[in-house]
Amino acid sequence: MASKKNININLKVWRQKNAKAAGSMESYKLDNVSTDSSFLEMMDQLNEQLVAEKKEPIAFDHDCREGICGMCSMYINGRAHGPDTGITTCQLHMRMFNDGDTIFVEPWRSKAFPVIKDLVVDRSAFDRIQQAGGFVSVNTSGNTIDANTIPVPKADADKAFEAAACIGCGACVATCKNGSAMLFVGAKVSQYALLPQGKVEATERVLNMVRQMDEEGFGNCTNTGACEIECPKGISLENIARMNREYLKASLIK
């Protein structure tokens, strides 16, 4: 059974006025945090306390708070999305912490994800990678062929879905010691490479998406596997391998 209790915690949070300003870790004390609260509810509570003290609250990205939009993005105690696996920051609960703990909260750190303010970073690099080729070039007329015209083996469809489950939160980049985006790109490349609808453009897609990824300043993959472990959706390294295959194939024929 859930044991309801309140804990007092210390926080060390990255504060940075804007993209150009220098930032620093600041210390805060927060009492009476319910262990049933989510981590972001704890942050809300801290912000309410700051507003009451007429201090500026901490800016952080968040939206759906149910682990699917991919907006929340905190590096907590040295781990992307904190000390639990298979979840986003918004699904992390305070019962993972103990009374008196000091919790470090930092933004995603990557050259390709510059800090905008406090814990908010700019992840539009992911959008640009998607724009470079993360689509099937089909017009939206609805007058395509009937959805059941091309059967897709269930195993392929399931794998494509598992790859497509990526929420684009950037935890893979944040946690990778190389700041590599290959899990994200690999997942997108895989989703389309596994489906007959995506195969037509597979060559162009993988070349363009990888080129854009490199231009954005992400690091390289050294197969540490950290991304797979921290990914809230459990996206598999198989997707990076598939991208490697696709790219090798593409660069040999193109």
């Binding site: 089909v138 007058n143 062929i145 469809a157 399931d158 879905f161 989703q191």
Partner: peptide, 22 residues
């Protein structure tokens, strides 16, 4: 119906049966 046709054409990975159909 067009929605489903469109989404499949776009590469939306809907759940499928063993025969490969939706």
């Amino acid at each position: 119906g067009n929605i489903i046709d469109q989404c499949v054409a776009q590469g939306v990975p809907f759940a499928r049966e063993y025969g490969g159909l939706l």
